[in-house]
Design a protein around this nucleic acid. Sequence first.
DNA 1: AAATGATATGTTATGTTATTACGCTTGCGG
DNA 2: CCGCAAGCGTAATAACATAACATATCATTT
Lengths: 137, 137
Amino acid sequence: MAHSHDMPTDLTRNQELVLGTLTASSGPLSAYDILDRLRTEGLRAPLQVYRALEKLVDRGLAHRLESLNAFVACADAHCHRKGLIAFAICEGCGKVDEFADAVIESRLGAWAHAEGFKVERTTMEIRGRCAQCLKAA
Amino acid sequence: MAHSHDMPTDLTRNQELVLGTLTASSGPLSAYDILDRLRTEGLRAPLQVYRALEKLVDRGLAHRLESLNAFVACADAHCHRKGLIAFAICEGCGKVDEFADAVIESRLGAWAHAEGFKVERTTMEIRGRCAQCLKAA
DNA sequence: AAATGATATGTTATGTTATTACGCTTGCGG
DNA sequence: CCGCAAGCGTAATAACATAACATATCATTT
Ligand SMILES: [Zn+2]
Ligand SMILES: [Zn+2]
Ligand SMILES: [Zn+2]
Ligand SMILES: [Zn+2]
């Protein structure tokens, strides 16, 4: 079974560094977190990171978590380039779980259709505690 | 029919000013937008606004839109103090529509139950174009 | 090879959003 | 009156994000 994080071969150096940092992290990172981890690689300015993140997010290789102002590597590259993705974010350990639900997507689509609203992008983020953290407590 | 925005009587002065500003606005406002509109009332510091917003959000009188870093008055005070609320945000005119969907809520609950994840808070925000803006274009 | 255009990069400065730290005030129950 | 909780005011700072401008890299066309 192939690893989900095989890195595409057509990334630029900065994109590759940023995606590598996200992939190596156990949880979401802010752009400035990423920058700090890449200073040894020569990155100096926030914009270098933000530009790489923009491309990665456009390509679905990374996601932005709006409620955290942070980013994660896509956990599941083969299936969600399109469509609605939900994130479950554990406040305890920072772990982020990524999932899709066709029923939710279709309910949203139905609402939008009824209202005449054209959906461009959907953010869905659940905050709480994961099973492991609940058990530990 | 009663107006949905009858203001509670037990707000502090700052809370009342902030909620009034949000209610008077046709779209979401950032904390700094609010501050600017309240300088004539004597407010000077971001914290005065953030503190008021925190209480208002806790009480369900206002909502934070994570994907915008901005706030709106609750459009529908009687029904969503609890439960999942979704927001549809028009990129054209800034209008925000607030709605609840029991099916979505139960799907999320089912996912969480299956994973052993304890949900504390959910953010759901749709970005796109409202019917009116689509027609105008 | 030279010119062009598209994409990526580097750098500085600045803008925007949010919080920390500290101290004063007000109202309220003991 | 005292002690405590909630609210308030102010200053400073932290955290997140973009604007503006210059340069570099690489493929395409002439
Ligand atoms: Zn993904
Ligand atoms: Zn956890
Ligand atoms: Zn509401
Ligand atoms: Zn609109």
